[in-house]
Amino acid sequence: MRLVAERIGHGYGALDVLSDISFSVADGEIVAVVGPSGCGKSTLLRILGGLERPRAGRALIEGTAPPGSLNPITFVFQDFALLPWRTVAGNVALVLEDRPLAAAERREMVAGALARMGLADFADAYPKQLSGGMRQRVGLARALVVRPAVLLMDEPLSALDAQTRELLMDDLTGLLAAERFAGVYVTHNLGEAVRLARRILVMSRRPGRVRSVVEIARPIAGRSAGDAELAAAAQAIWESLREEAVAADRELADG
């Protein structure tokens, strides 16, 4: 199954946010989207996930979802989007409750996803009792449990402190390497982008267009935090983005 962005353009009122974005995400491929703030990265992700209707162009699914996938296109949210009134297990179970599954099977799936993210001991805790990192692990467990084909990740680590981010990045790379999910990873952190992505879409400031595409061929499994080659790639992207970022920073908020 491939997820395709076809000449997507979007805006709010007189404000153009996205312009003529086209790319595709192949099976098992991670595409990172980076760009200065306000370039429409998150909007693009919502359009790809069917949460927003684009003004121009369209998001397409090519081929069929793999068998057993309950929710082929699945989000991981920046602010976790956990229901505070449900326990960890309850939050994960939420997305299965309306599926035709036997209760025992559902319980097993929830337990499996929690174990996978190291949350087995926290099944009955409420989100409020967890650290930020653990909360996003719940968000990841919830995404895993519906067996997605494509993960749409909207700055999933940006609400976390630097150390936690590093720990979660390791979890995430492990997960993506093992499961061979495809994914679109929106971030403003170039280090994260070069760690995870096979291709990096560099976007211009508003209205966001694709400025350049950077490919990194090395498999994700072999990449690590202190990698010099990756650091160089990040530096190169930053050089090309710098002017855009400065200009975006000086723009008035309502543009």
Binding site: L70, N71, I73, A81
Partner: peptide
């Protein structure tokens, strides 16, 4: 939006 994205 989260609930919608999971198809509830």
């Amino acid at each position: 939006r989260m609930a919608q994205s999971f198809g509830l």
